[in-house]
Write a protein that binds this DNA or RNA. Structure first.
Lengths: 215, 215
DNA sequence: GCGCGATTCAAATGGGCATTTGAAATGTTT
DNA sequence: AAACATTTCAAATGCCCATTTGAATCGCGC
């Protein structure tokens, strides 16, 4: 029999949904408590304050998502292109999935827009390892002879594709009729293929530019 | 001799700086008034309310920027690649310029993160025309035979590159040590060349994918 | 220099929201 | 079942900020 969820658990789960949907600042403590069926004082009792609850939500969503969408297994060394392709596919899959894990990209989307005070520490703790490995794969693909700055820029360009896809997708969901919306999301796999092509094509063109210029 | 600026002008100018630096929600009316050397009630007297001042700031920055960074002249039809390259270069130049016009990308960056209520109408009024022309150029380059959805996605991918570059650049300036920062901005022109290469390379790879798949 | 509309000013007003408080309810130990 | 700790509760409290107000001041035609 399912042990019924404690107030603390209900708070985290309600909060993860609402924070992801509306961002840190737009969600009120009252709202979370109501969604969790708890009293207004519950957040402060169980978590001290709102920002601490937010941190716990990150923990919760990251654990969830690391389990469902682990990084590609290591063919970084042997075939960086394949690794990067798989990385993108996995990200896009998560963005468009319907279960709880899709809340993580949602939350990241919010956090990107209006970084909270905890931003840096959260980033360092949860995102840095992935960041390093993507960097490594890109260097494998377009190096050697690429400078640190060129690598950083290529990395930024590469990441911007799926991050922005996420932005567009979130905009779709909030029904806001604004720029950078996505087309109706027919088939995520097909969409992923196109983004993959753009990303790899871009990286290879970058490599060519660097090598020809260098000569 | 310079006629001295009216309170209204001082408000708009102070506001354009502060809104661009901190975003709509994080800037207080009091702050703007102080920077403009005006009384706390000045904003409401001259503009009715904060949101209206914000709208005027958009007008102001768009007019400024349209004068300094007009869209490339029309070789869209004849050479879309060259047009797109020039478009990117011009954007990047504006992002890294030091005069007042760089506040526009800054403001757009903020607006993207936390859209205000006016977002859609502002977008429609100021950004839509450019949007249409970029779309047209991309279609020239990778069409024909590209579906509406494929075009939208390619457009999104294309735009994401310099928009995200802007994000990274803004992060640099706010001294926040977080992800997606740019390397120290040595030479914007060189940087622009690399982004150009990535963008065009990505679009061409997209074209190839679509054509081969279609066959 | 008088009168009057336009502007500026300092001091309220009021709403939204996180957090506190102290009392009530519930659970646990012996 | 008495004593104690944990958890819930409704009602404050206090802060921040946009906006209002009504009185003072300015600018200018006459």
């Amino acid at each position: 029999m399912g042990k019924k969820r404690t107030t603390k658990e209900r708070l985290i789960q309600a909060a993860s949904q609402i924070f992801a949907e509306k961002g840190y600042r737009d969600t009120t403590v009252a709202e979370i408590c109501e969604a969790a069926g708890a009293n207004i004082a519950a957040v402060n009792y169980h978590f001290g304050d709102k920002s601490n609850l937010y941190r716990q939500v990150w923990e919760y969503l990251f654990a969830l998502s690391a389990a469902e969408y682990p990084l590609p297994t290591d063919l970084i060394e042997t075939d960086p292109e394949a690794w990067l392709r798989q990385f993108i596919r996995s990200r896009i899959e998560q963005i468009f999935c319907t279960g709880t894990p899709h809340r993580l990209p949602q939350l990241l989307h919010r956090e990107m827009g209006e970084p909270t005070e905890m931003h840096e520490s959260l980033f360092e703790k949860h995102l840095l390892p992935t960041h390093e490995r993507v960097s490594q794969a890109i260097r494998q693909l377009i190096g050697p002879g690429v400078s640190e700055n060129q690598l950083k820029l290529a990395h930024l360009n590469f990441m911007s594709l799926h991050i922005f896809l996420n932005v567009g997708h979130q905009k779709n969901k909030t029904s806001c009729q604004c720029r950078h919306r996505l087309p109706s999301t027919e088939n995520p796999a097909e969409l992923a293929r196109q983004v993959e092509a753009f990303a790899i094509g871009g990286l290879l063109a970058t490599r060519d530019l660097i090598h020809n210029t260098g000569k």
